[in-house]
Structure formats: C-alpha cells, structure tokens
C-alpha cells in the first residue's frame, strides 16, 4: 500500500531557504532554472557485464549494468526478445533508503526508465529472437544507485542509454536445441535513443534537474522522456500537488531541447 512519506526534519528547516532562492531566480547550488548539474559519463567499467555506464549528475551517482542471457519469450510476443529493467535503491546510497524488498520509489524509477526504452522501441527486440516462441535473448538493465543527491530518474536514464549504446554481445545461434555462441563481439542493436528530462515545481517556479534539497520541498515533479526524433515516448508526474496546463506545455517543449543536449553527450561517451 502506498502512503504519504515523511519529510526529513532538516528538509523542513531548509524549506523556506530553498523556495525563496528559486523564487528569486537563484538555486541552492548556483544554477539557473533551466540548467543541469555537471554531467559525467563513463562506460565499460564492469568487464563482466555486456555493457555498463556510471553517471555522475552533480553529486548523484548511478551505475547501470546490462546483462544479456538466453531465455523464453512471453507467450503474447513470441517473435520478440525480452527487456527487463530493475532498480536498486540500497542503503549505501542515502540515509533515506533501507534494505528489504524494492520500495515504491524503486519500482517507479525502474518502470519510468522501462517505459522510455520500451515505447521508443530503442532495443531492436525482433533481432533478439533465436527460435520463435521458444528461445530469445533477454536484456537485463540493472540500475544501481550509488549516491542519491536528487533526480535519480535522469541520472538512471542517461546511464541506461549509455550502457545500452556501448553494450557488446556474442553472436548467439541455435544448433538443434543448443544455443552456441560464436566468437567476436557485436553491438546490441539499438533503433532509438530515449532521454528523460525531469522538472520540479518549487514554490511557483519550474526548475530542471532538481537537487535533493529541491526534491524534498517541491510541489510536484514531471519527467518527460524524448526519443531521437523529438517526440514524447514516456511521461510521469510525481509529488503531492500538480501542474497547470500551461506549465505542462512549457516543460514538454523545454524537454525536447534539454534531451537533445544530453543525448549528444551520452552518444559521444558511449562511442568512447
């Protein structure tokens, strides 16, 4: 069951400072309302994974690993591979996170990233079929949060795309009933490059890429995922209040611009 979360006491004390700064066109970390924190992307850190990327967005740090294994397709999509996205918000990353089964925040994060990749048809699912209805390749996207300083959705989205774009796999073929792997690596076939852009409404102002202090006092949050042609492929509103129609339109337009900037950085980093 989902219930109203508790705000840490410090956040309540900081509330006024953070809101006043944003209202005066400033932010707690000296950014403008429409700018991202410094973004760093490193790919291929985990040799045993098919693909991996570590992203730092300001002080937020996210690691994504891609594993590709053989498995069975879903009965309703016999001619497609399988894509699974999971997120771990472990206690290492923040005093706000606890051990135990995935929290609703972890589930929401994973499902928003999943929607972006799935709905933009980023991974070429048809190319993952080994034997129709029987054997396909399964792509696991595992999101590991290492340090939580706000806007985990964008950090995870950037890391997931960088990891997918740099992933390499062995050529798998079916000999009788056996899956055999041929030597030589080839890239994971990608058809699209979805990038999430998250906004927060702090007081009455919309800011992009909210830092943790802003997330804790925001009225509402909106993630807009944009695919490579500038269309929207996923959206998710969060937070206890909402947005006006005009605010939503403004954010949709700004997301197109911001996603293009980040996409260029991601693809450059993935090429290495």
């Amino acid at each position: 069951m989902s219930f109203t979360p508790q705000l840490p006491p410090v956040a309540k004390l900081e509330q006024k400072t953070v809101i006043d700064l944003v209202a005066n066109g400033k932010r707690i970390d000296d950014r403008t309302a429409d700018s991202y924190r410094p973004l760093q992307i490193q790919v291929g850190l985990i040799e045993k994974a098919n693909g991996s990327a570590q992203v730092s967005l300001g002080k937020s740090k996210v690691l994504v690993g891609i594993k590709v294994e053989t498995g069975t397709p879903f009965p309703d999509t016999p001619d497609e591979g399988v894509l699974t996205v999971n997120a771990e918000l472990g206690p290492l990353a923040s005093p706000l996170f606890e051990t135990g089964p995935p929290s609703e925040q972890a589930i929401e994060l994973a499902r928003v990233i999943d929607r972006g990749i799935r709905e933009s048809k980023a991974v070429d699912m048809k190319s993952l079929v080994l034997l129709k209805g029987k054997k396909v390749q399964v792509v696991f996207v595992d999101i590991y949060i290492l340090d939580h300083d706000g806007n985990l959705i964008d950090a995870a989205s950037i890391a997931a795309l960088a990891a997918l774009a740099s992933a390499k796999l062995l050529k798998a073929e079916l000999k009788g009933d056996e899956v055999v792997y041929k030597p030589g690596l080839h890239p994971l076939p990608l058809n699209n490059h979805p990038v999430a852009v998250t906004f927060a409404k702090v007081g009455k102002t919309i800011v992009v890429d909210p830092v943790l202090e802003e997330e804790q006092v925001m009225n509402a949050r909106l993630t807009v995922t944009i695919e490579k042609n500038g269309n929207i492929c996923a959206m998710q509103k969060g937070g206890l209040s909402g947005f006006t129609q005009d605010e939503l339109k403004t954010m949709a337009h700004l997301a197109v611009q911001k996603s293009a900037e980040n996409r260029a950085k991601i693809l450059a980093a993935a090429k290495g």
Binding site: R115, R118, E119, S120, A220, L222, E227, G230, N231, I232, C233, A234, M235, Q236, K237, S241, G242, F243, T244, Q245, L248, K249, A252, H253, V256
Partner: peptide
Amino acid sequence: VPNANLVTLLQMDGILTINEFEKGLT
C-alpha cells in the same frame, strides 16, 4: 483538480508529438 486548475496525475506511454500531446491534454 478543476478549481485549483492543477493536473495531479499525468502519465504517458507510446509515441506522441508535442502537438498531439497538447491536443490530447486539452
């Protein structure tokens, strides 16, 4: 929420152009 004029739930999956989104929202 009509009087507050706030959209309090918004999700999307699939592909929409910005214009389609604006039209759909209205």
